[in-house]
Design a protein around this nucleic acid. Structure first.
Length: 445
DNA sequence: TCTGGGGTCCTAGGACCC
DNA sequence: TCTGGGGTCCTAGGACCC
């Protein structure tokens, strides 16, 4: 019964004029249990069984093809179900990437630790991720969409936004006709199912795509806000994560409707001007962000979690080799994609899960592995290395396309550089401080 | 045996410039 | 001695997403 806020219906001044009766129709498409579904195409005998994808093991496929006696190659289709590895026998670190729907019935889901999942569903079959295969199917379903509706925004391997507004059929039944066409085309080409939500904007489309999973379509209009959106938990809003969700809960706000009932100023008081205003806006279903079809990468990184926590001194050789390898892989990524970077950074995760990052912006762009290794090595000297390490990462940012690097001001480089440094910084950067503490271990890298 | 890997965006402070 | 504002760049950390 509550009337919608008058602003909701108002057109944003930036919105292009549309023919009479044309509604903005944005779709969000989400592939159903993507990583697992890709595997099920290869192993159809696992259909209907609880299967999880994840963990660190990469050899499963080979072992399966070899068979228990290691003799001859077996056809994937004929490998008996009993030969597949089970979650209860899983050893090692890692999280679940995707679980099939039968596995989800046991409470197992994405991002859950393997060990916890093994307790919930020990009989689930575990398979490693096959990134090449996943990427192949990702390209396949996206190109299928592009052939039908070209205004598409990539949101990772298994998700996209599509602007239906000006696509033929995009207005029929609120977008349902076009959604059905896309769903069917993707299934015909890949054998995979997806779920689609169509709504006046990306925010609502994203929520709508979850309404009818798997293989579902749901259509949301502006006037459905109270009935379909407000009853949902605030965590369903894309951008409200564990922290904000918890804080809202402490303030007695659980649903999006309750959030919408709050005074904007009050929200700004608790969450800051920008976040508070944003929360108020999204709770009223407002979002005029466009579907962005092209974007440039901001950073490229590689990181790895060790099988066991490593110590900077005791495991020096091992760490050093891993570190160099990460640098080389970042360099390869840059070269393969045709980019150079001038900010090189490192990331450490300690055994207590605390994260430290350091980075350095160089006066030149590079994609050279040895240079990256050298710059990253400097960063390493500025970070405490007394605790055991769980993860090490290397990151390149401030990117430019190779050959299109901005000309950097040289100015009076040396004096400027010296002026900008605080006293003592030179010691740290030089790594010659010998000032004790954790610094002593740094040079071991 | 808790808790992967690859990203984006935001904030906040300090240095520096005009 | 006290007192300016913009603006940009850099660094570190953190929230969040897929």
């Amino acid at each position: 019964m509550t009337a919608l806020d008058p602003d909701t219906a108002a057109h944003s001044p930036a919105a292009p004029a549309r023919p009479e009766g044309t509604l903005r129709r944005i779709a969000h498409l989400d592939m159903d249990a993507f990583f697992a579904s890709v595997e099920l195409l290869r192993y159809p005998q696992l259909k209907g069984l609880p299967v999880v994808i994840g963990g660190g093991r990469r050899k499963v496929d080979e072992l399966l093809l070899q068979g228990p006696d290691g003799e001859g190659l077996r056809e994937r289709h004929f490998i008996p179900v009993e030969d597949f590895p089970l979650l209860k026998d899983y050893v090692g670190r890692g999280v679940i990437t995707t679980a099939t729907y039968p596995a989800r019935q046991f409470g197992v889901g994405s991002a859950m630790g393997m060990m916890k999942a093994a307790k919930l569903c020990p009989q689930a079959i575990v398979l490693p991720v096959d990134f090449d295969e996943v990427r192949r199917f990702s390209r396949l379903f996206k190109s299928t969409i592009m052939d039908i509706a070209p205004v598409m925004q990539d949101r990772g391997v298994d998700e996209v936004y599509i602007d239906f507004t000006d696509v033929p059929g995009g207005q029929r039944e609120g977008g349902r006709v076009l959604a059905r066409l896309i769903q069917k085309s993707i299934f015909d080409v890949t054998g995979l199912t997806c779920s689609i939500g169509v709504a006046p904007n990306r925010l609502l489309a994203k929520m709508a795509s979850e309404f009818n999973k798997p293989n579902g379509i749901s259509i949301v209009y502006e006037e459905d806000l109270q009935s379909k959106i407000w009853p949902l938990h605030v965590r369903k809003i894309n951008g409200i994560g564990p922290k904000a969700g918890e804080k809202l809960a402490r303030l007695g706000i659980e649903t999006i409707g309750q959030l919408a009932a709050q005074d904007e100023q009050w929200l700004m008081g608790h969450f800051g001007k920008s976040t508070g205003a944003w929360m108020h806006r999204v709770s009223w279903g407002r979002d005029d962000s466009p579907v962005v079809t092209e974007s440039e990468p901001v950073s490229m990184s590689r990181e790895t979690t060790f099988d066991r926590d490593l110590h900077a001194v005791r495991d020096r050789a091992e760490l050093s080799a891993i570190f160099t390898d990460l640098c080389m892989r970042v360099a390869e990524d840059l070269k393969r994609k045709g980019y150079v970077a001038r900010t090189i950074g490192i990331k450490l995760r300690y055994d207590d899960f605390k994260i430290a990052t350091r980075d350095h912006t160089a006066p030149i762009y590079t994609a050279d592995g040895a240079t990256i290794r050298q710059l990253a090595g400097q960063c390493l000297k500025r970070v405490p290395l007394d605790k055991r390490l769980r993860l090490l990462g290397v990151r390149a940012s401030t990117l430019a396309r190779l050959g299109e690097e901005p000309v950097l001001e040289t100015r009076t480089a040396a004096p400027l550089d010296a002026r900008r440094r605080k006293p003592g910084a030179a010691d740290r950067l030089g790594g010659q401080s010998g000032s004790g503490g954790s610094g002593g271990t740094a040079s071991l890298f």
